[in-house]
Design a protein around this nucleic acid. Structure first.
Lengths: 122, 122
DNA sequence: TTGCTCTTCAACCGACTGGTTGACAACAAG
DNA sequence: CTTGTTGTCAACCAGTCGGTTGAAGAGCAA
């Protein structure tokens, strides 16, 4: 329960069955039994999956008689995309700059094997 | 081991320590010991984390004497972003259309009868 | 050779996960 | 009220996960 939101979302989508549920919920809301129908698992297992998705904020549920329609909350996707884009941009920018090879290796300053540089360090 | 690539990437990033490693690797490559230094865990644990990231394709490793520099492979991010964007777009589009409420909660149509639900209760 | 550093491998441990079955609450319809 | 549908809760089980410690492999430096 005390996991950070980002971990919960990534973890929730790490399961193929849950990803498939999300994919189907993107098309239309569904009930638990309706969601469980294509899979070869018990309805209780699907209910557990839905709890994981709900705890991650990916899904919300209302009441309708004895049914509990499941609705996809796509806003949480932004949590991931912002995180991903941030570091991808950093990595790409670093890749674009060529001089970063000078900074990649030295863990400590006294590099044991000197002069391996191309000899013309600016 | 036979998990699909998408599951591996999501699962790898579900851990906060591994996400932090990715964040630091976006800035610069690093060695195992260098990566392990800020964390309060053993170097072996960090080595395990790196194996997970490597199996997910998020990281590559070269040889350099007895060191094994770790390099971030940002291309795998696209796997996630395409998946996410696909279903977010579907969900948003569905949200924009108003008439879908007619399909999600049919009030007085012939839906409550489960006779034509799935046909084969197996 | 003998060391020393960096890293991984192997075994083990507690906690969590995804699945099961069984019981039960809530509601609709007969 | 009784029956049937829908969904959750509880207990249990095997497997995975993140962590540990200990040993060992791979490469440089004396």
């Amino acid at each position: 329960m005390p996991a950070d939101p980002l971990s919960r979302v990534f973890s929730a989508l790490a399961d193929p069955t849950r990803r498939d549920m999300v994919a189907r919920l993107a098309v239309a809301d569904a009930t638990v039994n309706g969601l469980a129908e294509p899979y070869d698992v018990s309805v209780q297992a699907v209910s557990k999956h839905l709890k994981v998705l709900e705890d991650a904020g990916l899904v919300s549920r209302s009441r309708q008689a004895q049914r509990r329609p499941v609705h996809l909350e796509a806003d949480v996707f932004d949590l991931m995309t912002t995180w991903i884009e941030r570091y991808r941009r950093q990595a790409e920018e670093r890749y674009r700059r060529l001089d970063d090879v000078l900074q990649t290796m030295p863990d400590d300053v006294d590099t044991p094997t000197p002069s391996t540089q191309t000899g013309a360090p600016s």
